[in-house]
Design a protein around this nucleic acid. Structure first.
Lengths: 240, 240
DNA sequence: CGCGGCATTGACGCTACTCAAACTAGGTGG
DNA sequence: CCACCTAGTTTGAGTAGCGTCAATGCCGCG
């Protein structure tokens, strides 16, 4: 059982490994990634993966499924800070900040498969070559840039703009991982998640989405989204 | 002229150096900070310090004055992402991300005094000892946590809550630098800046502020703010 | 004295919220 | 194969919070 699992989960055949931060190291012999991998975990949907206040000593990559980072506020309010898609580190921060105390929690949206590493091991891998250092560096840069963009979206864009930006961000991130075909991709978010990510309510998200559908901007069916008019969606995102 | 400037600006007498990330290194002999400092710059109020899209090769600490990071959107909208107060790096990101391309611009709020360093030099300083690495690490951690908090504020708090959170954040950061006496501190923001940081309009900020004054929460006069009832302000920030 | 930069205030409107009910589809057990 | 259940979506009516625009006030400064 175990050996079969290890074989089918071999890193050099992992489609996502190539797009992870440690992509450049992934194919070496002996395979450093696979050697250092501590465990592969499967987690059901809607589970807490990391709880607020934790100080993780391991770092995991998401091999399959979606998760999100959320902050819970008083009175049943919550804000989704960002989404974690396949190929992402669950907690990139822990590669930069020693003993990072989580100011939010991480929750699974779908069932997940995680690959776990010791933080020290991963740091070594990810700093082993110039190429790796660059990969880490630009990954952090994109993450920081996305956080900043999220702030301007929430502060200064209306509902349509925020939702359009969110869709575009996800499309971009998934496209870098080869998870988009012809502007269509897996989209496991419920309207409730879109609402909590954009600072809106479910009801209003619903109205905006049906407006976007009517305008032939997107085609959103359960679990799958297609951008029908990319240029116009960009314009709408920018103006809104 | 120059020699006088250097003497009065000596790092070991800089009140803020102690609270900067490189604080632990500040008093060594020979003085590494002062040796590596490339220049001291004075910049007027309302100037662009770093422009969006730049890829800075120097890193500066703010010795005096306030600045802020802003993103400009279409249609005269702007979002203030965060404020830079004395003792901060203008661009902490550049210590973590090589060749970071600025996704926002940095603007001075008041006249500034900056101390400039080569990024490589500063990296060396800031990684020279365990203590330094920890200082850098926790500084990045606080920055990341603040960005995330800002996201939940904008997404899920009302006007009072956002403004209260902003005031508390600034008080906390200034307090760590010994720039707060009895909950009172320099506060050079115009209402317009509060508005652009909290995603509100100047008019509405005005109404909220006068409400907060009427409730004896804060005492805000031009350029100076005092928190009158800290506990209650925390409560208001949390609930709002 | 007058100007420029902010702060303040009022009238009015719109975006997005609230609450609640109806609807839909996928899954499950009898 | 149907009845039912649940999770999620859709829709409506009424409303609140914050935005818009414009006028007025205030104060320091040249």
């Amino acid at each position: 059982m175990d050996s079969i699992a290890v074989k089918t989960d071999a890193c050099e055949r992992c489609a996502l490994g190539a797009f992870a931060v440690y992509g450049p190291t992934r194919l070496g012999t002996p395979n450093q990634i696979e050697l250092r991998r501590l465990s592969i975990r499967h987690i059901g949907a809607r589970q807490i993966v990391l709880a607020e206040g934790e100080v993780p000593d391991r770092i995991s990559t998401l091999r399959m499924g979606w998760a999100f980072r959320q902050k819970e506020l008083s009175g049943r309010r919550r804000q989704i800070l960002s989404f974690v898609v396949p190929g992402d580190f669950i907690l990139l921060e822990s590669l930069v900040v020693a003993k990072y105390r989580l100011p939010y929690s991480v929750k699974s949206l779908t069932p997940l498969t995680l690959c776990d590493f010791a933080i020290g091991d991963m740091l070594q891998i990810v700093q082993s070559t110039e190429e790796q250092r660059d990969a880490l560096s630009s990954s952090i840069g994109r993450y920081a840039t996305a956080l900043n963009r999220r702030i301007s979206d929430l502060g200064r864009r209306n509902a349509v703009g925020r939702i359009a930006q969110l869709i575009l961000e996800l499309e971009g991130r998934l496209a870098r991982r080869n998870l988009v075909q012809n502007h269509a991709f897996e989209f496991p978010l419920r309207q409730e998640h879109i609402a909590d990510a954009t600072g809106l309510t479910g009801a209003h998200v619903n109205r905006v989405l049906s407006e976007m559908r009517k305008n032939d901007l997107i085609d959103l069916v359960p679990r799958r989204l297609r951008i029908l008019d990319y240029e116009r969606l960009v314009r709408v995102a920018e103006e809104g």
